[in-house]
């Protein structure tokens, strides 16, 4: 209402917000910090608190063959599933966001359905189904399974951004004589970039952490990191698990840095054009 209010109150509000942000990130990082510290433990077992620091568990991690080969395979699967999801998910999201069809909600509901299926059930169903199709325990089976669970993220995030964007820019471009492809490539796609980026990150993270689907398709060439980690820690609970976990986090950060370089991660939170 009064001028003095609008000068004073935002500052207090902002300070409160900043305090909250710090507390929130402390909550978010707390258990991760435990894991990271633990990965540098000198002890041969999961003792807490740790007394001495060492890199021996990172060495152990590098020497344990299944960790490294499954990590490489997990990364391939994550990228493949994200790309496949983008290719079939983005057109669906764009269509749904602007569709006037009375069936739009039904279709959207259907496309998001895999999110709520307990994945262990989907995994076992896919194993029998893909085996019947002749794909069996293969790399393609893993990618298909992961795409089923990645797809909803891309569709939902892209649709949300596109709904919010409004039509004026596309209309303007059309009026100025741009063709459909030109409008799509130069107007629509840049508009939904934040959605694709956020969805792709979700998709890759979900794929990298997926246990219940990968579990049923694990063979000598198709073992993913979470499956190997589970098998390892069922029989041995040493800090090597914390080391590979920390490594996984670092790899994710590096992947994000690459995305940041290529497209600008800030598009998710959009420092304004």
């Amino acid at each position: 209402m009064s001028g003095s209010h609008s000068v004073r109150r935002p500052d207090l509000g902002l300070i409160a917000l900043k305090v909250y942000v710090v507390a929130f990130f402390a909550f978010l990082m707390a258990p991760i910090v435990v894991v990271v510290i633990y990965s540098f433990s000198d002890m041969a077992y999961t003792t807490w608190p740790i007394t001495d620091l060492s890199l021996r568990w990172y060495q152990r991690m590098l020497e344990y063959r299944p960790f490294m080969s499954s990590l490489a395979f997990s990364l391939q699967v994550a990228v493949a599933a994200a790309v496949l999801s983008i290719l079939i998910g983005v057109p669906a999201a764009l269509a749904l966001a602007r569709s006037g069809s009375r069936y739009a909600e039904a279709v959207m509901t259907f496309l998001l359905a895999p999110l709520s299926m307990p994945m262990i059930l989907l995994g076992v169903a896919l194993l029998y189904y893909l085996s019947w199709m002749g794909l069996g325990v293969s790399k393609l089976s893993v990618v298909l399974g992961h795409t089923v669970v990645s797809l909803p993220y891309i569709i939902r995030t892209v649709a949300a951004v596109y709904i919010q964007s409004g039509r004026s820019q596309e209309e303007a471009a059309t009026i100025l004589g741009a063709g459909r492809w030109q409008v799509f490539w130069h107007v629509t796609l840049p508009m939904v970039r934040a959605g694709i980026l956020a969805g792709a990150i979700f998709a890759m993270l979900i794929s990298l952490d997926n246990l219940p689907i990968s579990f049923f398709f694990a063979g000598p060439d198709t073992n993913t990191l979470p499956v190997v980690m589970l098998a390892y820690q069922q029989n041995q609970f040493d800090p090597a698990i914390a080391a590979i976990s920390t490594t996984q986090t670092v790899i994710a950060v590096i992947m994000l840095l690459i995305v940041q370089r290529l497209t600008g991660l800030h598009h998710i939170i959009g420092q304004k054009r």
Binding site: Y128, F215, F216, A218, G219, N223, V228, A231, Q234
Partner: peptide, 11 residues
């Protein structure tokens, strides 16, 4: 192949 029995029996 490392893993757990329930996955192998299903495979």
């Amino acid at each position: 192949t490392v893993g757990s029995p329930s996955q192998w029996v299903n495979q």
